[in-house]
């Protein structure tokens, strides 16, 4: 099975973010970057599908400046076979503009399965996967928490609010991956060494018009917590009084 996984380089979400001087982006000074959380699950899901079949080929694709090569190498060190950088100075804020670039690359690639993370953990649009599927005209299941592939067909489970549904679809298809499928493996030393020799192709990306523009980034108001009501069960009466009279939630 030929699998493509589209991944994004994203900031470590444990960062205490600062806004850049232009007020329109996050200050990247000193920030660590890695494969975006859900995209890591998608890479792991692809590797497990390949291992289960005992054959196949996993290509990881990322759009962005040369810094994404580090992200692609990480996926190669986990076990992906080859990588493609769709080179552009910046990833646009318009998910459809991103999807067009990815669809151009995926089109005609002969992939049986095209995986994405459910959403990029930074931009949090959860849109690029289904948009890419529409542009390619292939079936799509988004936010799959379980995925099985057999005989050219897939079955996926999606988590809904207080429920779940199960969908079946033929390949080739786009599936976006939610948490619950698999924790991404840590690259082994052998994997890291092997990744250095794996092919990483750089192609220029043709980014079209972006109709979504960031005009401002700001930090939400800080929470002012930190009040200790008391210790142990003896604090309960005062806590309940505060919930009734001050917070008015009881």
């Amino acid at each position: 099975m030929k699998i493509a996984v589209c991944i994004k380089r994203a900031a470590d979400m444990e960062t205490r973010f600062k806004i850049a001087a232009n007020g329109m982006s996050v200050d990247e000074t000193g920030v660590k970057f890695d494969i975006a959380d859900f995209d890591g699950f998608a890479v792991e899901a692809a590797l497990q599908l390949k291992e289960r079949e005992g054959a196949g080929d996993v290509t990881v694709i990322s759009m962005g400046p040369d810094t994404v090569q580090e992200t692609l190498r990480k996926a190669l060190s986990m076990g992906a076979d080859k990588a493609v950088q769709l080179k552009t100075d910046a990833v646009p804020a318009d998910a459809l503009a991103i999807a067009r670039v990815l669809a151009d690359e995926l089109e005609g690639g002969g992939y049986d399965l095209m995986l994405f993370g459910r959403m990029a953990i930074d931009a949090a649009n959860q849109s690029v996967g289904p948009m890419t599927a529409e542009l390619l005209g292939v079936p799509c299941v988004s936010a799959a928490s379980q995925l099985t592939i057999a005989n050219g067909r897939g079955t996926a489970r999606r988590e809904l609010e207080g429920a779940a549904d199960v969908l079946e679809f033929p390949l080739p298809a786009v599936v976006t991956i939610d948490e619950g499928i698999a924790r991404p493996r840590l690259p082994s030393l052998k994997g890291i060494m092997a990744a250095k020799k794996k092919p990483l192709e750089v192609k220029p990306a043709q980014v079209g018009e972006s109709r979504v523009k960031v005009t401002k980034m700001e930090l939400p108001p800080e929470r002012t917590g930190g009040r200790i009501v008391g210790e142990g069960p003896a604090a309960v009466p005062e806590l309940v009084r505060l919930l009734q009279t001050e917070a008015k939630v009881l």
Binding site: L96, A124, Q126, S127, G129
Partner: peptide
């Protein structure tokens, strides 16, 4: 929602218009 975040991007791509998500 789970359903809307599946649906809206599909519709945006079909219409070729921008989506402001979430």
């Amino acid at each position: 929602s789970a359903q809307g975040r599946d649906l809206a991007p599909r519709v945006a791509a079909k219409l070729g218009v921008a989506l402001g998500a979430d």
